[in-house]
Design a binder for these strands. Structure first.
Lengths: 168, 168
DNA sequence: GTCTATAATTTGATAGAC
DNA sequence: GTCTATCAAATTATAGAC
């Protein structure tokens, strides 16, 4: 039913993950979707609403993909690593919540909170794996996000592999 | 002699580390320094020039502080950790080059390259420590940057400690 | 749901007086 | 070196017709 709404979110997600929160506009999104910016405002009242919706969807999708990927005999840490690496491999996109986390200090509250929740969920999930502590959760989430940051900065996805190989 | 120029760079650095590259303007800087935006343009022709100068200074200062801190019997990794942690403790500021690294895809080339150089220098320096490999360099830089990102997102500097305690 | 039109603001940057 | 004044462009957002 809401095909256009999803399409807007798709374009917004890619733009945020490429240029950051301050690096996209309603007009650019509208142009790419094939409508006018007023129509984007029909679907999302404000820029913060759109960004928060995109972040929430990203978080839920990540969780779902993780559940789908994990089987009885899979290495959980390997699943985490693969999921992060997947986004990077596609087209050098950074983790959406990592981007939002860094821009945190001037983001609308609702957007920053979605990014924050993503990090909290990740730490929590890893902490609850067999043989892992809360500190392990923070350490590994930091390693994965940092590896993305480094790979993106250097424009070389294999840096992610080097920086996370010890995890598996 | 160039007191104003340094003052402009100080304000710009804090603004970039708080709001990112797209989150500050010449007018805001001018207001805080106590001049008009045209005067800022006198010292730095373009926004990219200013950001690149700030990033270069940050990189050189980091290098100098590292050298100053390292003594014969100090643990090098501990120095690295302390330096990153120091910036965070002050007022929740993120590593300037980490911020720029994340916003990389649409930054002016000269700015992105300064951030890139910071990461390369860091990886290289750690790699050259006794008993460390190139992969260790990437792993530890990723860990430090990721720990800052995580601590900033959660608004809790102690997250940095948890995520990097294993390094020392 | 999408459009045209526009308001109100902010932005990076420049010209020229002093 | 700093100022006033200004430009051209872009931004988020809204009003109202269709």
């Amino acid at each position: 039913m809401s095909g256009k709404r999803d399409e807007i979110m798709d374009v917004a997600e890619r733009m945020i993950r490429t240029h950051g929160y301050n690096g996209f506009s309603f007009r650019e999104i509208a142009a790419e979707v094939g409508v006018k910016s007023a129509s984007v405002h029909y679907h999302f009242a404000t820029k913060a609403d759109l960004a928060a919706a995109v972040a929430r969807r990203f978080r839920e999708r990540f969780e779902a993909e993780l559940a789908e990927r994990s089987t009885a005999d899979s290495n959980p840490l390997s699943d985490w690593r693969d999921l992060f690496r997947g986004a990077l491999a596609d087209d050098g996109l950074m983790c959406l919540c990592g981007i939002l986390a860094v821009g945190g200090n001037d983001l609308p509250l609702e957007v920053a909170q979605e990014a924050r929740q993503f990090m909290l969920d990740g730490i929590d999930a890893i902490s609850n794996l067999d043989g892992f502590s809360a500190e392990d959760g923070a350490r590994i989430m930091a390693q994965l996000e940092g590896a993305m940051l480094l790979a993106r900065s250097l424009g070389d996805p294999t840096v992610f592999d080097k920086a996370t190989r010890h995890l598996v």
